[in-house]
């Protein structure tokens, strides 16, 4: 028996919005410590890694490890039927080929349930090595989304250059070129508005804008985003989900041909 309950459907809606741009389907691996999802996009350029810890749910029970392959488009149709303040419960029997989403209104007067067929997905699990990154940037998630959106007008690629002084985002193309520099915050009044840089060595890396823009669909989940970078290795973009886990995106860099 698997059962996981959240007191507000908003969190699950936001999590789904954060991953469905990159993935059409994905397997939710459930065990007694929580729910994990790891999947690459079709082109194998980016990877989504989602963790929802058991202790972050209002109720969580998972008697046997369970892998639930879901079509995220179908899941989105179902989640659209939930009000933000509904309680949402996911339920499945052991070895089941369906999962049930149950929504309960706050006054308990409306209860809906939606049963969705599960899929058998071929899963390629990637082992991600522990890495000490040369630069770690923490910045407002809204600011990062804005920068990705603005600069993707000027080129397909975004260059991120991180030094001790700050982080510079650049794009160039037919129109011309664009640069946005963010200095490290000197006095932190509000932590969620700060730009903080931990640098061992300066880094300059180039990434495809379209993936970065997909990652920013996670912005509603949290105030701050963390970018971890080292030369010539994938970028990690991490959004923490309050009290329950995180969604991390890995993006392979573009390199000189």
């Amino acid at each position: 028996m698997f059962e996981a309950r959240l007191s507000s459907a908003t969190t699950l809606k936001k999590v789904l919005d954060a991953i469905k741009d990159l993935l059409n389907e994905a397997t939710f691996d459930c065990n007694d410590s929580g729910i994990q999802l790891q999947a690459m996009d079709n082109s194998h350029v980016s990877l989504v890694s989602l963790t929802l810890r058991a202790d972050g749910f209002d109720k969580y029970r998972c008697d046997r490890n369970l892998s639930m392959g879901m079509n995220l488009g179908s899941m989105a149709k179902i989640m659209k039927c939930a009000n933000n303040d509904d309680t949402v419960t996911m339920k499945a029997q052991d070895n089941a080929d369906t999962v049930v989403f149950m929504f309960e209104s706050q006054n308990q007067e409306k209860v809906s349930d939606y049963e969705m067929k599960l899929m058998n997905l071929d899963q390629e699990h990637l082992g991600i090595p522990e890495t000490d990154y040369a630069c770690i940037v923490r910045m407002p998630a809204m600011e990062f989304a804005r920068i990705c959106r603005d600069l993707s007008q000027f080129g397909e690629s975004l260059v991120i250059c991180c030094t001790k002084e700050g982080v510079k985002f650049s794009a160039s193309g037919d129109v011309g070129s664009a640069n946005i520099k963010l200095a490290q915050t000197t006095s932190v009044d509000k932590e969620e508005e700060a730009v903080i840089i931990e640098m061992q060595e300066p880094v300059t890396l180039t990434f495809a804008c379209r993936y970065l823009n997909s990652f920013t669909k996670a912005t509603p989940l949290t105030n701050q985003v963390q970018l971890s970078m080292s030369m010539d290795v994938p970028l990690v973009v991490e959004y923490r989900i309050q009290d329950i886990g995180h969604v991390r995106y890995y993006l392979a860099p573009k390199i000189e041909d």
């Binding site: 699990h125 990637l126 994938p234 890995y250 392979a252």
Partner: peptide, 14 residues
């Protein structure tokens, strides 16, 4: 010219 790399060249399959 910048070439897009694949994640598969950085991470190993488990």
């Amino acid at each position: 010219y910048m070439k897009q790399t694949s994640l598969k060249s950085f991470f190993s399959f488990t």
